[in-house]
Design a protein around this nucleic acid. Sequence first.
DNA 1: AATTTTAACTAACAAGTGTTAGTTTATTGT
DNA 2: ACAATAAACTAACACTTGTTAGTTAAAATT
Lengths: 189, 189
Amino acid sequence: MKLETRKEEIINTATKLFKEKGYSAVTMRDIAKAMGIKAASLYNHINSKQHILTDIIISLAEEFTNGMKTVLLTDVSNIEKLKLIVTLHVHITANNTYGMASLNNDWMHLEEQLDYYLELRDTYENNFRGILQEGIDNNEIINSNLEIMLFSMLSTLRSLYLWIPKKEDLNTTELSDNLSHILINGINK
Amino acid sequence: MKLETRKEEIINTATKLFKEKGYSAVTMRDIAKAMGIKAASLYNHINSKQHILTDIIISLAEEFTNGMKTVLLTDVSNIEKLKLIVTLHVHITANNTYGMASLNNDWMHLEEQLDYYLELRDTYENNFRGILQEGIDNNEIINSNLEIMLFSMLSTLRSLYLWIPKKEDLNTTELSDNLSHILINGINK
DNA sequence: AATTTTAACTAACAAGTGTTAGTTTATTGT
DNA sequence: ACAATAAACTAACACTTGTTAGTTAAAATT
């Protein structure tokens, strides 16, 4: 039972508020009020509002990068790799639904770390694309428009943060399995 | 060839900026600067920043509501209705990619019209859900988790605004057809 | 018991916010 | 040519923003 440092409490509080209203609409006074302290007190623990956002986004982006690295090293079919990616998204999102909102909607407000973030995102998408392309080449995946397939899957996975909190009754493995099936086999009977 | 009123120019300029940085991060001075005038001059044409956002979002939401109404009245299979919905999203999004960003990310900053927007969105989702449910009942659609199917399709359709601007080479009917196929039949060979 | 550290506080700052009031200038319709 | 309108302007407002400086009180360490 590890208890939160004060800095982590601030980041968690901010993350929740950022999800509800977006980074720009949340003030330091909002964050402080939610914690029952004054805005100036936050600066005993964090450097700036900007650093809070960076912390939220970069740590999540790195989780995805690491997850992708593992998937690429796993020796299974490309379809199985896609299932692993679905599981990766479900797990990371289930553990930090609030943070995923910032990752998706507020990355453009990063400053010094914006280029680094974009690099991680680009690499991630390219790896995803590569798996799909190999799947097509190996006759595992239909030879339809690669970019549309990529876009469709990524859109669904990136929107999980909006949806997981509303359906707490579904456990994560059940969700991963169901979602994999729908993304891979469609909904047609 | 109908030419834009000054008010429309302002709304269009604002819509573009809102997509790049989000509603809260865009100032009236930003909008004015992009038009080469002073912020105060905007108020000769619009009532408030808030009204710009409302205008963007509500008109789009009503377009979707009207489109759905037409789909529901069309006498085709439920799978065909889903294809019509895909086409609806592709067309509306292609005509207003910038506005779709506000619809997706800034609806929570609506004020007087927030409840109305939520009502439109709820009704839309329920109609979508109803088509899927009928499809399941008629053995057109697999009897998998309804909510996951709904979420997956809607997520993809709602993210179109991020993707359409990058792929201008693809025409809208081709995109609709491809996307329908992937959403309905999956990517599996 | 004395000292350092932690973490809150009050007060203030400079800059930026949406918006209003009043004015000026160019264009349009008579 | 004259009046009316459209659409820009300057100046200012009241308020909010992120952040800093300096202070205080309790808790932990010596």
